[in-house]
Nucleic acid binder design. Structure first.
Length: 425
RNA sequence: GGAGAGGUGGCUGAGUGGUUGAAAGCGGCUCCCUGCUAAGGAGUUACAGGAGGUAACUUUUGUCGAGGGUUCGAAUCCCUCCCUCUCCGCCA
């Protein structure tokens, strides 16, 4: 959520900032509504003040004169009743306006950072660096071929259980998934993160708080009989964990790491990545999340990104770091670094982590603040995958594949997986 | 899911329609006193939002789990929901 005061006081700037996303956002309606609402606010406040005084007066009269049925008193009560009616009339109008304003503002995305590369879509994203040597051998197998050969997972049977884009991991596949989760969690905990294991089902409030609702209701699975959704990312419960709190500044920065299953409808991605582990309705992810003081978020963004990178390095997976351009930024993010891992079979880099600085956007939506110089200020929040487990497994399979069909397990993972190679059972 | 109890300020805990944002205690803060037992005394101390002022501040509204309702007036009465505790049932 953007700062309503800023929208009101500097609409041109707001529109200009938003336009960096490559779309036009009109905020004049919001300001018109706000002006109208302000009038009601003041009116209501005055009436309430009067009415309150009157009630006190009545109370005094009654306590002094014992009896309460004289004409004077009735007149006063009558007047109070008039106040009441007027107030409720104004309040009704005020509420309608308030809801309209809130709806409009909730649909505005965050400002892109001034430092983000300008651009319309992902073609304008900026590669910042590359790490490792991409494997360029011809005729390498795809991870789903390897998975099938080594009997690591089965998508046909999973479609029978659920539908397409679901996976069942089998034997060493499941073992590798677990190993990755534990490995990543341990690494991050060692780096000062506190582990949380949050609920997988979250309510609408939580989704609004991190920016998935109201705009993207199509992208999450909704439970039929309850106000609960399957969480698309741990970012949602992690943000909501401190909802409506004023956090003790001494606790900052708060750094959480959470493993969670993630559920996404992937509406509109028909035909894309239909095979393998890349795009599933359900996948596992280890998520990094920071709450920090506003002045610290730039630094924190670098740190969270490098914490995510450290996993790729430990796993010896070639990757590159991409600075997402203004037009390609997610709804809540002001700046995003994507980590893309090398996938040799398709000879391209694929997103495996997305590290975003949401500044105060989510904190304002979720009302998460701290005290700085006796003032309540919204915190900044940052999130980053550290990493997406399924995609990590895909990368390990493809990058570690050997001529004999086996797969080399990265050294750092061996203690977790329990073996140096993945072979046919 | 059934039956009962309850949710009040940083904490403990009073308060069943009226000048109550809320007694008391603890804690916190300020000052004073005293070299003696982790002592005593005085004062002060909720939070959030809006408006105004560079600011100390002023003013106003809201807040006793949440949302509605009754009333001139609600922590207090009524309704719905949420949560906590105890007992029963079910259950990984």
């Amino acid at each position: 959520m953007l700062d309503q005061k800023l929208i009101r006081e500097n609409p041109t700037l707001v529109e200009k900032n938003l336009s960096l996303r490559g779309k036009v956002y009109k905020i004049s309606l919001i300001n018109e509504l706000t002006v109208k609402k302000k009038e009601f606010d003041i009116e209501i406040s005055n009436l309430q003040s009067e009415s309150k005084k009157l009630s006190k007066l009545i109370g005094q009269k009654i306590s002094k004169s014992q009896y309460n049925n004289d004409e004077d008193l009735n007149k006063l009560k009558q007047k109070g009743n008039e106040y009441k009616i007027k107030i409720s009339e104004f309040e009704e109008k005020q509420k309608i306006l308030e809801k309209q304003i809130h709806d409009e503002i909730s649909n505005l995305p965050n400002f892109p950072s001034e430092d983000a590369p300008l651009g319309k879509d992902e073609r304008n994203n900026l590669q910042i660096k590359k790490w490792g040597d991409p494997l360029l051998t011809e005729n390498l197998k795809s991870h789903w071929e390897i998975g099938e050969n080594l009997n690591l997972f089965d998508s046909t049977k999973s479609a029978r259980i659920s539908k397409s884009r679901f996976i069942t991991l089998i034997g060493n596949g499941a073992r590798l998934e677990r190993a990755l989760i534990n490995f990543m969690l341990d690494m991050h905990i060692k780096n000062g993160y506190i582990e949380l294991m949050p609920p997988a089902l979250v309510n609408s409030e939580s989704l609004k708080g991190s920016g998935q609702l109201p705009k993207f209701s199509n992208e999450s699975f909704k439970c039929n009989n309850d106000d609960l959704w399957l969480s698309p990312t741990a970012e949602v419960p992690l943000t909501a964990f401190h909802k409506n709190e004023i956090v003790d500044p001494n606790q900052l920065p708060i750094k959480y790491v959470a493993y969670s299953p993630c559920f996404r409808r992937e509406a509109g991605s028909y035909g894309r990545d239909t095979k393998g582990l890349i795009r599933l309705h359900q996948f596992n992810k280890v998520e990094l999340y920071w709450f920090c003081e506003p002045s610290k978020s730039l630094e924190a963004h670098k740190q969270i990104t490098s914490d995510a990178e450290s996993i790729l390095k430990k796993l010896n997976l070639p990757y590159r770091l991409v600075d997402i351009c203004t037009g390609d930024l997610g709804f809540s993010s002001s700046r995003t670094y994507d980590l893309e891992v090398w996938m040799p079979s398709s000879k391209c880099y694929r997103e495996i982590s997305s590290c975003s600085n949401c500044q105060d956007f989510q904190a304002r939506r979720s009302s998460i603040r701290t005290k700085i110089d006796k003032k309540n200020v919204y915190l900044h929040t940052l999130n980053g995958s550290g990493l997406a487990i399924g995609r990590t497994m895909a990368a390990i399979l493809e990058n570690g594949q050997q001529i004999d069909g086996s797969v080399k397990i990265p050294d750092a993972l061996v203690p977790y997986f329990g073996s140096n190679f993945l072979k046919t059972a």
